[in-house]
Design a protein around this nucleic acid. Structure first.
Length: 426
RNA sequence: GUGGGCGUAGCUCAGGUGGUUAGAGCGCCAGGUUGUGGCCCUGGAGGUCGGGGGUUCAAGUCCCCUCGCUCACCCCA
C-alpha cells in the first residue's frame, strides 16, 4: 500500500477511489458473472444506465433530507447550466429509465454500477464504490418481496458466505406511517431529556431516524418505543405477514429489527439489510434494499410500486476475505510462446492458437532462452512452446511442460491438440 | 464535516540520545549453462528518506506548516 511517497508531479487516483488490477480484477469478473447468472435465471435483464443523471432524479427520488443527497452527492453544473449528479445509488436511475421508456410491467432489471458519495474514506467505504442490484417494478405482491430477498440471499450463499445476519422490517405506507410517526414523536418528546445531544433537538425532523442512533443514550431511551409493525394498516400488515411466512417457507432466517430504518426517503413497507459478522471494520453492511412504492410518483410519474436491493462489491469481497471464501483465481494460460529466431513464428503461431480457442501469451524481444522461460514460468502457463532455428527449419516446436513432464518435439500442426491434451490431463 | 495513527527503494520494513558515500528481505534485471524455468550462488538497477520552511558546524533523526495514506465518529454498500 503506497502512501504519500509518490512525487506530487505524478498523478494518483482521487481520494476515496481505487484501482482494481489483475489478478484481483479476475475476482470481480467472477463476482459479476455469478451475479448475472443468478438474476438472469430469475427473469432479470441488464439495465445499463448513465453514470450521470439530472440531479433532480436523486433530489426528488431519494429525498433532500437524506445525508446522501443533502451532503454527500457529487453534484455540479453542466456547461449549459443544468445540474447533473454522479449517481450515489442504483435505484433512482433505474426508475427514471422506466419512466422514460415505459417497458411492459412487471419489469425486472439488474445493474452493475459505480456509486459516488463524497465522504471521508475508511475501511469498506469509498467515494466511488461499486454495487450490483436488482429492481422489480409494477407489482405489490408480497411474494415478489420474498423473491427479491431470496435472490440476494442466494447470491451471498453462492459466494460461500455464511457469517451474516438478515434483518427485515416494514416501513408502512402513506396511510399508516404518518399516524405512527406522530405516535413516535409524542413518545420521543416524553423522553426528550434521555436522548443524545444530536437527536434531542431534531425529533420532529425525522423521528424514525432516532431509532437507529447507535449512542447508548438513544438506545436506552427508545427501548420501550412503540413498534411500527404493530401499527400497520390493513394492507401493510398482511403484506408483511406474507413476506415473513414466505421467507420462513424458503428456510431464510430473517430477524425483525424494529430499528431498521433505511436512509432513503423512498422506502415503504418491506425493508431489509444484510450485515456481515466477519468484517472487523465498522462498515459491515454488505447489502440492503426494500420496497419503494411511492418513488415513481415522487419522480413525477404514475404510481408504480417497486422493490429492489443493492449489494456493495467491495464490502462483500471484504467479507469473503474474512470468511476465506470466493477466492476466484483466473484460469492459467495453456501455453507461452518463445521465439528465438526472428519473432515470425511467435507472431503467427500465437494468433493461430488463439483462434483455435486456446489461452496463449508470448514473450517479445531478443532475450536469452533462460529469461524467456523465467517469464513463461511466472505466467503460470501449462507449457512453453519454443521455436529456435532447428525447430523453424524442421517445422516443429519444442513443447516443454512447465508443471512436470518431458519436453518433446511436436509438429507445428499438432501444437494446439498437444496443448489441449496437456490442459486436460494435469 | 470532526478526531486519532502513520509517511525511508516496486512491496514489507531496519535505521539508540542529530555526525561521514541511507540499509535488509522479497520482487525486478543480468551472469553462473553456444538453446532450457522453478532451487542455489554472484552481481546490478532502483530512494530529491511525502513536500516546504526553520533550528544546527551537521537533520531520515528535533520544531512548525502542508500534502497524502489510514482508522474511527456521522452516514451508508
Amino acid at each position: 500500500m503506497s502512501t504519500g511517497r509518490t512525487p506530487a508531479s505524478t498523478p494518483r487516483a482521487p481520494r476515496g477511489t481505487h484501482d482494481v488490477l489483475w489478478p484481483e480484477s479476475a475476482r470481480w469478473e467472477a463476482f459479476v458473472a455469478t451475479f448475472a447468472r443468478i438474476v438472469e435465471s430469475s427473469g432479470y435483464g441488464l439495465a445499463a444506465t448513465p453514470v450521470l443523471e439530472h440531479a433532480s432524479v436523486f433530489r426528488r427520488g431519494i429525498g433532500e433530507s437524506s445525508d446522501v443527497v443533502g451532503k454527500e452527492m457529487y453534484e455540479f453544473e453542466d456547461r449549459d447550466g443544468t445540474m447533473l449528479a454522479l449517481r450515489p445509488e442504483g435505484t433512482a436511475p433505474v426508475v427514471r429509465a422506466y419512466l422514460q421508456h415505459r417497458p411492459v410491467l412487471p419489469w425486472k432489471a439488474w445493474y452493475l454500477t459505480p456509486a459516488f458519495r463524497h465522504e471521508r474514506p475508511q475501511a469498506g467505504r469509498y467515494r466511488q464504490h461499486h454495487q450490483v442490484g436488482i429492481e422489480a417494478l409494477g407489482e405489490t405482491d408480497a411474494d415478489l418481496d420474498v423473491e427479491v430477498i431470496w435472490v440476494a440471499e442466494h447470491f451471498l450463499r453462492t459466494l460461500g458466505l455464511a457469517d451474516y445476519v438478515l434483518s427485515i422490517n416494514s416501513m408502512g405506507d402513506g396511510r399508516c406511517r404518518p399516524a405512527y410517526v406522530a405516535l413516535l414523536a409524542r413518545y420521543l418528546h416524553d423522553h426528550e431529556d434521555e436522548l443524545c445531544e444530536d437527536h434531542r433537538h431534531r425529533i420532529d425532523a425525522n423521528p424514525m431516524r432516532v431509532l437507529d442512533c447507535k449512542r447508548p443514550e438513544c438506545r436506552a431511551a427508545t427501548e420501550g418505543v412503540p413498534y411500527l409493525i404493530d401499527h400497520l394498516c390493513e394492507d401493510c400488515g398482511p403484506h408483511f405477514e406474507r413476506v415473513r411466512s414466505g421467507l420462513r417457507a424458503l428456510g431464510i432466517d430473517a430477524r425483525i429489527d424494529h430499528r431498521l430504518v433505511r436512509g432513503f426517503d423512498y422506502y415503504t413497507r418491506t425493508t431489509f439489510e444484510f450485515a456481515s459478522g466477519a468484517i472487523e471494520a465498522a462498515q459491515n453492511g454488505i447489502g440492503g434494499g426494500g420496497r419503494y412504492d411511492g418513488l415513481a410518483e415522487a419522480m413525477g410519474g404514475p404510481p408504480t410500486p417497486g422493490i429492489g436491493f443493492g449489494i456493495g462489491i467491495e464490502r462483500v469481497l471484504l467479507a469473503c476475505d474474512a470468511e476465506g471464501c470466493f477466492e476466484a483465481a483466473p484460469p492459467p494460460l495453456d501455453g507461452w510462446l518463445i521465439d528465438l529466431v526472428d519473432g515470425t513464428s511467435a507472431r503467427d503461431l500465437s494468433i493461430e492458437l488463439r483462434e483455435a480457442g486456446l489461452r496463449v501469451d508470448r514473450g517479445f524481444g531478443t532475450r536469452s532462452l533462460k529469461a524467456h522461460l523465467r517469464a513463461a514460468d511466472r505466467s503460470g502457463a501449462y507449457a512453453a512452446v519454443i521455436v529456435g532455428s532447428d525447430e523453424q527449419a524442421s517445422g516443429t516446436v519444442a513443447l516443454r511442460p512447465l508443471r512436470g513432464g518431458e519436453q518433446r518435439q511436436v509438429p507445428r500442426g499438432e501444437v494446439a491438440a498437444a496443448l489441449r491434451a496437456l490442459r486436460e490431463t494435469p
